[in-house]
Design a protein around this nucleic acid. Sequence first.
DNA 1: TTTAATTATCAACAAATCGTTGTTAATGGT
DNA 2: ACCATTAACAACGATTTGTTGATAATTAAA
Lengths: 300, 300
Amino acid sequence: MDRIKSMQAFSAVVSEGSFAAAAEKLNTSSQLVSKYVAQLEDYLGVRLLNRTTRKINLTEVGQQYAANVKQLLEQIAEIEHRVGAMHTETSGQLRISAPVSFAISHLSGMISDFQTDYPQVTVDLQLNDRKVDILHEGFDIALRIGHLKNSSLIGKFIAPVHLKFYAAPSYLKEFGTPQHPKELAEHRRLIYSYSENDGSEIMGYWFKNLDTQSKLPMVSNNGDVLVQAAVAGHGIALQPTFIAQQACNEGKLVSILNEHAPPSMGLYAVYAHRKLLPRKIRAFLDFSEGYFGNPPVWDS
Amino acid sequence: MDRIKSMQAFSAVVSEGSFAAAAEKLNTSSQLVSKYVAQLEDYLGVRLLNRTTRKINLTEVGQQYAANVKQLLEQIAEIEHRVGAMHTETSGQLRISAPVSFAISHLSGMISDFQTDYPQVTVDLQLNDRKVDILHEGFDIALRIGHLKNSSLIGKFIAPVHLKFYAAPSYLKEFGTPQHPKELAEHRRLIYSYSENDGSEIMGYWFKNLDTQSKLPMVSNNGDVLVQAAVAGHGIALQPTFIAQQACNEGKLVSILNEHAPPSMGLYAVYAHRKLLPRKIRAFLDFSEGYFGNPPVWDS
DNA sequence: TTTAATTATCAACAAATCGTTGTTAATGGT
DNA sequence: ACCATTAACAACGATTTGTTGATAATTAAA
């Protein structure tokens, strides 16, 4: 038995004054209305209406109940309306986790463009290079750079991310320019903390013999810092183009070993579920689609 | 879909923190709870919970909705509790319609006895010799004297009511004592307005030739008045024993034609419906059962 | 008074839904 | 790496729902 339907039926009978009129109002048959009210009475164990074939009279209990039910139904409608509005209005807070360097260099512009399109959405942008647990930490979307792993999360591809080896001309002048990745093991490498050895040949060379302290002048969890170190001539950095390309264009860095670049990665928007996605999230995903162009702005 | 059940399921999941715990609380299976919540989400078109196999997280909408639903469910419980209480507590107002003379002479005592047994019931006793429309005029019970007619109403027999012909000794001395009903047409008759010719032989004699003005000194809708008129020697009255018997016992009246008394009638409690009878009504009906004894107090 | 129309209820049946069972995939703790 | 727990999914039988037709009761009209 659907108690809410029963209540609606009862309420309609009370306000319309007859079963037939109530049925019309609710677009159903009088028989069904009669059944509903009878069910409600059975459930409550109370007679709500004294009815002859011609007239309807509320019992004492029925009067009280009718008043309460009317209020209740209005409340339910109000609540559901609010929920519906929240869902369709494309509003609310959108919590995004993003990698630090990418966010600083390219995301801030995108977010502000997004907000001019959707002023009702408040963005809470948390910069963090960790792999956050978006469910547990309450994020709607996490932007991640890398390859997508199997998980219950969905990842939407936003833009390709290419890694290149960079070094300052001064460094190359002093230590020579490696012609093949296997020479990397002999160079001073600027390592990004969260980078992973994905098992590819090129990454094997990159991480080779890192225990030799002299070859490892710097480790950081921030790419910009590493790029600056490279610019200062402290070593070779393996960094995404969106971080280092500008310095390269300015002549402060040179990209090397371009024929042996690691497999290209992607910028992904990772989110939690597949159906009944809140509008604000849908909107952000759609907005991000193609925003950076292909090839992306930082590569052209 | 039973929205209330769904709400309860959702609310339980929120408060218990897991589907399994919620299922236990509601004495059902976790599968069912899962189904309910999914249905609710489909109905609302909104994701309420972000769930992994291990943790539950409310969405933004879900938080709001959960708070509202919790309140709502409490309200529903409160309302239904009140309704239940009204039904089981044997309380409330009991509106009774009763014949004037009978109420004055015998009902007042019964009502006060009833109220000592059921102090929570407020009695609203309306005296009226009309046949009230109990539904339309909002009565719970109508006490009626007479024969029960076919109707959708139920009548419960409370006590037998006998009619007798009464006259004052002085009247009989002056006009003679009728030995057979057919002689009534020659006597001065004190007529009760609401009395009906039920088609019986004896009532035929009683109503015969009433157009002769001299034979009709008085018509009243009140039996006591007619009895007093009879005591004063103004004529013959056909009245129930419960009104006239006392005057008879005191010698002020004599009952005549006892072998030809009209068919005995009854005092009935008439009420509206058969199932889900409010407690207060049930209580009154049970209380009235046998209250006046058999033969009733006014006849013994 | 009789007839017709309206109204609520009852009965029965087909269709839809519900709640169960068994299974799978994912996750966190040991 | 394994195991226990958890949520989701699929499928099936049982129950409930909503429909249709019929019945009884009451009022208005003829």
